[in-house]
Design a protein around this nucleic acid. Structure first.
Lengths: 191, 191, 191, 191
DNA sequence: CATGAATGAGGGTTCATTCAT
DNA sequence: GATGAATGAACCCTCATTCAT
């Protein structure tokens, strides 16, 4: 038993890597199946279309991401530490993937014209991260409206850092974001 | 030497609009020449390839952008006002183009695999914007090293705002970035 | 020996219906096994290929058809009445199947390229119908050679009616054929 | 001058032959372009789709057919002679094409599921032939209603003959149809 | 400068069939 | 006797690019 249908896994993994590296329409089904070492029809037995495969992959990524953030939020350390940890994790993530940026964002700019179902996944994911930062801000901000303001600011710092680390193939944007985010948090607590 | 070769202009303009609207690989050469009302070979007489056309377009965009930023830096208003103005301009730019995001960034994630010449253009442009924000910060920061810190932070706010306005098809990220950037500036001056 | 292998029956029945409705190459093996509620390999256990399945189905159809015609020939009514009855049955058959025409003929034009075994089935069936009409004509024609002439004519009226009812999605060709066939018969008897 | 764009001609001719021989879905675009000695993209530069190509071909065939029938109708010989000539021409046509039957009908039975535009062409063609036979019958029938009856009968004889010549790979059905059609005409005139 | 026919490589997808279980 | 994952060949179609005119 056990190894039943590992072709599906191989396809999903390979496609995910390629989508992240080259964007949705920078990857062809041919490339996916070749690198996953499968046949074309095997691909279509497991996924109804290239686009559905992409959506499935985004789903998997999103769930893992949400879980990690929920854990961080609930952890016992103080907010400034959480911010630190988040951006440090981001740093590692981006470096491991050679500054390929955010998988969702990368998929996005290419997919505009075509597919709403992919677009929707990306939106949901982004909003979910924005909400995470708002929750985080609630742990130190003096008021609800201030928490929203600061949460959104952290979200933009995160997003800009991710994007520019990719654009510039450098880690400094992430570090700058971490520093700025921490300062924000500390300032607010000292008021 | 008046109307000679206005075909080139039409192609460049049309292609730019389409690249920004639909992304690099969401636009075909056929569509470009049709909307520019030219012939196939005319296209290839002026531009060696679709990619070179894209590079040329990015060059044009970059120069216009740099000039505008230089003007803003040199203007007589106080720094907080400059920040305000920059993000307000960004807001208009993005709304006019239906939240299609940054042309450079959009082109980036698509082009990774293929072409270094496009990548280089994007890097140069991004660094040039980062430097603009550092210059801006120098106008109010207490020290050079602090100016760099704050300049980078403004840069990330700008980048995140642009990206998420596109991802979410909404203007609030830009407004949140402006608010945060202003606060940064004012805080620093009041220290 | 009761319910053993009713899968075979289900496949045969389902395939027959689908072939007639959508044509040989308008039906896929996947569709057949799904609508017959069987597994892939079960299909190929009972039939070596889609084509052999088609041949088997044509066989079944042919036998049923021959039996019905033999009964009609042997019945006690007078020839003109038999002609009437035959075309009335044809009318019902075509209407029930939404003017999908003759299963054999339909299969024919598709199969040309590939397979002699299907072709042979079709020929046999057609000759058998031609012979039926000759037998029918013998019941009223003045001579053997005249019976052949008229039998062939009835056969062509039948064939044309079936074909054009399909081409035009209309029943009038069958009714016109019946009228003409009856007139033929009556004329001959009144000579 | 002169030979400009003969690729289009080659494709149309080749496709027509193949459609007639193997039916619409028995022919692939790959086969067409190979036998026409062109590139795939050349095909699609001239015809928007395989289906549109088929429709175009049917149009060409239809026009040629209509013209020939109009000429025959208007000719000076007597009706029985016209019938004779029509079926003799049909005989030659079918023999030249190795009993491949009616191009329209052949295309039909396969096309059912997919394409209405092809279906419509076939219907129009068939009705146009039916009308031809009605016009022919008007040249000898005693009344309008009788002309319709006999015209329809001739049409069915023609259709059945064409179909069965194909099914049986034999010429006798056409000859039987001619004989029957002539007899019909002569009988009517002698009444 | 302009035309548009021609190209080869590749796009995503579906087919009938086989195999290990 | 049944399962369904895996296959390779073929499906129709589009791309950026070149060439003769």
């Amino acid at each position: 038993m056990t190894k039943k249908s590992n072709a599906r896994e191989r396809i999903l993994e390979t496609a995910g890597r390629l989508f992240h590296e080259n964007g949705y329409c920078g990857v062809g089904v041919n490339q996916i199946i070749e690198e996953a070492d499968t046949a074309k029809a095997t691909f279509y037995q497991h996924f109804p279309s290239k686009m559905e495969l992409c959506v499935t992959w985004l789903d998997v990524m999103h769930e893992a991401s949400e879980e990690a953030r929920a854990d961080l939020l609930a952890s016992e350390v103080d907010p400034a530490e959480k911010i630190d940890q988040y951006f440090t994790d981001l740093e590692r993530f981006l470096e491991e993937r050679q500054f390929r940026g955010c998988p969702f964002t990368n998929t996005s700019s290419i997919t505009d014209a075509c597919c709403d179902s992919i677009r929707k996944k990306i939106e949901e994911h982004k909003i979910s991260i924005r909400d995470f930062f708002r929750d985080l801000a609630r742990q130190f901000a003096p008021s609800e409206s201030r928490a929203k303001e600061i949460g959104d600011e952290l979200f933009l710092l995160y997003s800009g850092a991710t994007m520019e680390a990719q654009n510039l193939r450098a880690i400094w944007p992430v570090r700058a974001a971490r520093r700025a985010a921490r300062e924000r948090c500390v300032n607010e607590q000292n008021k």
